[in-house]
Design a binder for these strands. Structure first.
Length: 219
DNA sequence: TGCCAGGCCGGGT
DNA sequence: ACCCGGCATGGC
């Protein structure tokens, strides 16, 4: 059976279990961007607290965050961890947004997304996963997001070796799926949920819907 | 109660 | 081109 069919079968198994996950958990694109930076190596629950603080103080707006002092941002996002470096990263992104696009998120996404991806990667504090999360979940661009869960799950089930770099895993997946933004959106969300619930570092695949599917078919 | 979470950077090899 | 230490809070 081809790898393409495998990836679609994996998707269907996870989709059947989790249903539509409606990602990204945010009200608008700027909130996605802020969340993408705050969730770097951090539990999403902690990020939610930080987001709520920003909302409560009416700071989850480009203009406000751009004007705010770093110390003020640090205080609001403290629950998300790494709060000093993340406050600086938010400021750096806001400077980029205002310098290049007049502070308008919509203007930023009018740019060719490959060009935008390069520019985002040049912003200190934005790496490949954060850039791709912004492009896919805030800008609806056709790029698949790779994270530790993706690497772990695909390694565990023998789809990749595990020592591939980000781009190699991304190409492995995108070469085997149709170019489809809603599919990329939901697929990554399904992977994250699977990783959180079933695919820990310990071999605990007992009642994992993916593990069950992989065991009960010829693959 | 330690271990870990939806990474990234800068310096060293 | 990799490898590593540092960054930090809160949940389970």
């Amino acid at each position: 059976m081809s790898s393409k069919k495998n990836l679609i079968r994996i998707y269907r198994a996870l989709q059947r279990h989790f249903g539509d996950l409606q990602w990204w958990p945010a009200e608008e694109p700027f909130e996605v961007i802020v969340g993408a930076i705050l969730t770097q190596n951090t539990n999403w629950k902690n990020v939610e607290r930080a987001i709520q603080n920003l909302k409560k103080e009416k700071h989850l707006v480009p203009e406000k965050l751009y004007r705010a002092r770093v110390g003020r941002i640090e205080a609001l996002i403290r629950p998300s961890g790494y709060y000093r470096i993340k406050a600086r990263r938010l400021k750096t992104f806001l400077e980029f947004l205002f310098n290049e696009y007049g502070g308008q998120v919509e203007s930023m996404f009018l740019e060719d997304w490959r060009t935008l991806r390069s520019k985002l990667l040049a912003v200190n504090g934005i790496g490949e996963e954060t850039a791709d999360s912004i492009l896919l979940y805030a800008g609806h661009k056709p790029v698949f997001v790779i994270d530790q869960y993706t690497r772990r799950i695909f390694t565990r089930h023998g789809l990749i070796d595990g020592n591939e770099n980000y781009e190699e895993i991304q190409m492995f997946i995108m070469n085997r799926l149709p170019v489809d933004v809603p599919l990329y959106n939901q697929y990554h969300a399904l992977i994250v949920n699977t990783g959180k619930q079933f695919c820990k570092k310990t071999p605990l695949c007992a009642d994992c819907p993916l593990g069950r599917m992989m065991r009960t078919t010829t693959g």
